[in-house]
Amino acid sequence: MDVKYINPFIIATQTTFKTMFSTELKLNKPILKQDRRTSGDITGIMGLAGDKKGTLCVSFNERGALYLYSLLVGEKYEKVTSEIVDSIGELTNIISGQSRKEFEKIGLNLSAAIPMVIVGKNVELNFITVTPIVSVPFAFSLSNGDIDFINLDFSFEDAGSK
């Protein structure tokens, strides 16, 4: 995949984390995902349509999702609850919006619907595209110095592709 289609997602995710959590996301090396399964414990999923079509998945580990929620609204939970699920949906929504703003800068107009969230590791996903899935891992620090990860998995192709 052309890097110009990867950069908007990277910029969007890093901007979102910097603004909402005052947290730097360290970009690790993007890879082509070999399976069509969720990468983390809790995954936000958003379809994209318009000049191109595709699917964006934002995957979190449980620990990272709980931590980010506590930063966002000041409430701590020990396990994934409906509130945590909700927050992942909203984060996915925000990353999608920022990505689409970046895509607009390179002349691509995309729209998105309301995201959905899956709780569970290795859940099989039915991507609407046939193109390879690019997986972009990011690392971030928790308040205790531990490192956690999020994964951006996306697949993108021309709108008229079958």
Partner: peptide, 27 residues
């Protein structure tokens, strides 16, 4: 207050009389 950050969305909201438009993420 919305994740819709594209120019077309912002213009539509302004034309519809919105008093201010904040794009998520926001501080």
């Amino acid at each position: 207050v919305t994740a819709e950050a594209q120019k077309g969305n912002i213009m539509e909201a302004i034309k519809s009389g919105v008093d201010n438009y904040i794009v998520k993420p926001f501080t």
